[in-house]
């Protein structure tokens, strides 16, 4: 079995979000970047588990500049066998998906994993685009995936419940919480990662279809109004008369 895991880089979850140059560019100063949690904790770990069970290979791919090598090395330390980085500062889901599909076309992967979404752009678009570019079935938001020969059984999160899906490889799956347990790389993994292959691919030119023009931070809340715990009628009154929501 051959697994591809798409990994992306996002600001660490507690980072202060700020913008510069007239609110047109994300201000990276002081921001620490991490591997997108859905990619690292669920997609990557489950791919490695399946590889441990059935053999084969786990390849990770990232589209981004060389400063992303740090998250790629981490993925290798956690247990991926080799890595591809498409050297492009891609800004849109379309560009990222095109690069990933271009690579996957020549490699015959059985399962392509992504995270449910990146926590910076919250797009949830890349996986569906990759599936369409490769004309593969796509199971989104899977919280479980098991294999028996070429048949996979998955559970996916839908509004208010779960749905079970069975299908044959190859396909694309996006991982949500529950698919695996986070793994912390150990010393041996970190040492081995240094010797695992990381191939840099020069990108094809992709015409962007969507551009981000500017950003805005939300208005600050006007401040909390504290209500006397012994007077819940007052809270109900405020919700009714002032907030007008009940």
């Amino acid at each position: 079995m051959k697994f591809l895991v798409c990994i992306s880089k996002t600001p660490e979850t507690t980072s202060k979000i700020a913008f510069k140059e007239n609110n047109t560019i994300f201000d990276e100063s002081g921001v620490q970047f991490i591997m997108n949690p859905y990619d690292e904790w669920y997609a990557l770990v489950r791919a490695i588990e399946l590889q441990e069970e059935f053999g084969g290979e786990v390849v990770v791919i990232n589209v981004g500049p060389d400063s992303n090598d740090i998250i790629i090395r981490k993925a290798l330390a956690i247990g991926a066998d080799r890595a591809i980085r498409v050297n492009d500062n891609a800004l849109s889901a379309f560009a990222v998906a095109s690069h990933i599909a271009n690579h996957a076309k020549s490699e015959n992967y059985d399962i392509i994993f992504t995270g449910k979404e990146t926590i910076d752009y919250n797009g949830s678009e890349v996986a569906a685009m990759v599936s369409e570019l490769l004309d593969l079935p796509f199971i989104s938001y899977a919280s479980k995936i098991n294999l028996e020969g070429n048949t996979a059984t998955l559970e996916r999160d839908i509004e208010g419940g779960v749905e079970s899906v069975k299908l044959s490889t190859p396909f694309v799956v996006s991982a949500s919480k529950g698919m695996a347990e986070q793994r912390i790389p150990n010393m041996k993994g970190i040492m081995m990662a240094k010797r695992k292959p990381l191939e840099i691919v020069q990108p094809e030119k992709i015409e962007e279809t969507v551009v981000a023009l500017s950003y805005e931070l939300p208005e600050k809340k006007s401040g909390v109004k504290m209500v006397d715990p012994n007077d819940m009628d007052e809270l109900v009154r405020l919700l009714h008369e002032e907030a007008k929501i009940i």
């Binding site: 889901a93 379309f94 998906a97 919250n122 797009g123 949830s124 678009e125 890349v126 996986a127 569906a128 685009m129 990759v130 599936s131 369409e132 570019l133 796509f138 989104s140 938001y141 996916r156 999160d157 839908i158 509004e159 279809t209 969507v210």
Partner: peptide, 23 residues
């Protein structure tokens, strides 16, 4: 923008050569 919509947004965008924004 639920599990259905988001699972087809990207696919449709590719199929129709369209630009897409989720959410």
């Amino acid at each position: 923008n639920n599990s259905t919509g988001k699972s087809i947004l990207g696919r449709l965008a590719i199929r129709l050569n369209a630009g897409s924004i989720s959410g």
